[in-house]
Simulated assay, not measured.
Amino acid sequence: MGTLVGHVAPGFAFFALGFWHLFNHIKLHSLHGNSYSSSPWFPTSKLRYIELFLIMIGSSISISMELFIGPERHQPFDPDGTIPSNHLHNFEHSAISMTFFTYAAFAILLDKISPKAKYSLTQFLGAVAFAQQLLLFHLHSADHMGVEGQYHLLLQSAIVVSLATTLMGIGLSKSFMVSFIRSLSILFQGVWLIVMGHMLWTPGLIPKGCFIHSEEGHQVVRCSSLEALHRAKSLVNIQFSWALIALTIFAMAFYLVLVKLYGEKVTYSTLTKEDDLELEEDSDDVESQKQSKYGEPKSFIVTGKGYAAMDRERSIKEK
């Protein structure tokens, strides 16, 4: 993963997954606002499990790249069977992909075998995958102090949102906002990984005072002074802020467009003379139903007369 392609490829996968979920949640909420219920994944008309199959395929490719294709000797171990230091990050990245593969595989099995518990358990598996991702990026073997570490730190904030909303979704399956924010956070992970890949491994985009340096078999960004490092980190923070603003604008515009396209249509019709007569008959029926069991109407006037008679009897007794 420590290359441009190694970040852009998984970034595109997260972006596509988040966009697919965002589109389907908004469409579902627009069509069925009152009866909306979230879904951890969305089938298609031609192939029900296409989303889960793609997650499994992408995870398998990522594992293969990290453990067998990327290493120089096409295997991640030293001759004595131990893990070399420069391959630790490969095992960390592959563990994340393995967890997402597990999520997708069990989501298919749950849908086939246990439909009643598939939603909550699938959400739980998704939470495990995001928790694994957060743990390994937080305890990453790569540099935490440099420019790359700043990108990873900000990436963790998006993962935290994905994890929190996935856990909340277990008990709040009818909350559109929980699903909306979760989809947007997954999409944002993809955007940030793509930005990270280009900014860290494109020489022309390296901040002033910093340079690409090869360490332990992979390239990292180093800065010539403490001032240059602080400036580079500040630029990363600004990039994150701009990306967040752009994504917010995109999400709101996308929501408004889909609501316009798929929103529930309210139809109006003019009343005919027959409809007016039916309404008058219905109103008469309602009034007739207000009569008491003795056949007398329950009106304010009759009630008032009853109270007046009681007052006259009370005044005669007093005299």
Rank of each mutant, 00 (worst) to 15 (best):
residue 3 T to V: 07
residue 9 A to P: 00
residue 11 G to Y: 01
residue 13 A to Q: 04
residue 27 K to A: 06
residue 29 H to V: 09
residue 30 S to P: 03
residue 31 L to F: 03
residue 33 G to F: 05
residue 37 S to C: 15
residue 37 S to G: 11
residue 41 W to G: 02
residue 44 T to P: 02
residue 44 T to N: 10
residue 45 S to E: 15
residue 47 L to C: 13
residue 50 I to L: 14
residue 53 F to S: 03
residue 56 M to C: 04
residue 64 S to E: 11
residue 64 S to T: 14
residue 69 I to P: 00
residue 74 H to R: 11
residue 77 F to W: 10
residue 81 G to H: 02
residue 84 P to D: 02
residue 91 F to S: 03
residue 92 E to F: 05
residue 97 S to P: 01
residue 103 Y to C: 03
residue 105 A to R: 08
residue 108 I to P: 07
residue 110 L to E: 07
residue 114 S to E: 09
residue 116 K to G: 06
residue 117 A to I: 15
residue 125 L to I: 03
residue 125 L to M: 10
residue 125 L to S: 02
residue 126 G to L: 02
residue 130 F to N: 00
residue 134 L to E: 09
residue 135 L to C: 09
residue 139 L to F: 12
residue 142 A to F: 04
residue 147 V to W: 00
residue 147 V to K: 00
residue 148 E to R: 09
residue 149 G to E: 05
residue 157 S to Y: 13
residue 157 S to V: 06
residue 160 V to H: 05
residue 160 V to E: 08
residue 162 S to K: 00
residue 165 T to I: 02
residue 170 I to Q: 03
residue 179 S to N: 10
residue 188 F to V: 05
residue 189 Q to R: 03
residue 190 G to W: 00
residue 190 G to I: 05
residue 191 V to L: 07
residue 192 W to H: 02
residue 194 I to N: 03
residue 194 I to H: 01
residue 195 V to K: 04
residue 195 V to Q: 06
residue 197 G to D: 02
residue 203 P to L: 14
residue 204 G to H: 12
residue 206 I to W: 04
residue 211 F to V: 05
residue 212 I to T: 08
residue 213 H to S: 14
residue 214 S to A: 14
residue 216 E to K: 14
residue 221 V to H: 03
residue 221 V to L: 06
residue 222 R to T: 04
residue 223 C to K: 01
residue 228 A to I: 04
residue 228 A to D: 12
residue 230 H to F: 08
residue 231 R to M: 13
residue 234 S to A: 12
residue 237 N to E: 14
residue 238 I to A: 09
residue 239 Q to R: 11
residue 244 L to I: 12
residue 250 F to D: 04
residue 264 E to V: 11
residue 269 S to M: 13
residue 271 L to C: 08
residue 272 T to I: 06
residue 272 T to Q: 12
residue 273 K to F: 09
residue 275 D to A: 09
residue 276 D to E: 14
residue 279 L to S: 10
residue 281 E to C: 08
residue 281 E to D: 15
residue 282 D to Q: 13
residue 292 S to E: 14
residue 294 Y to W: 13
residue 297 P to F: 15
residue 299 S to M: 11
residue 303 T to S: 15
residue 305 K to P: 00
residue 306 G to H: 14
residue 306 G to P: 00
residue 308 A to E: 12
residue 310 M to H: 11
residue 314 R to Y: 06
residue 318 E to Y: 07
residue 318 E to F: 08
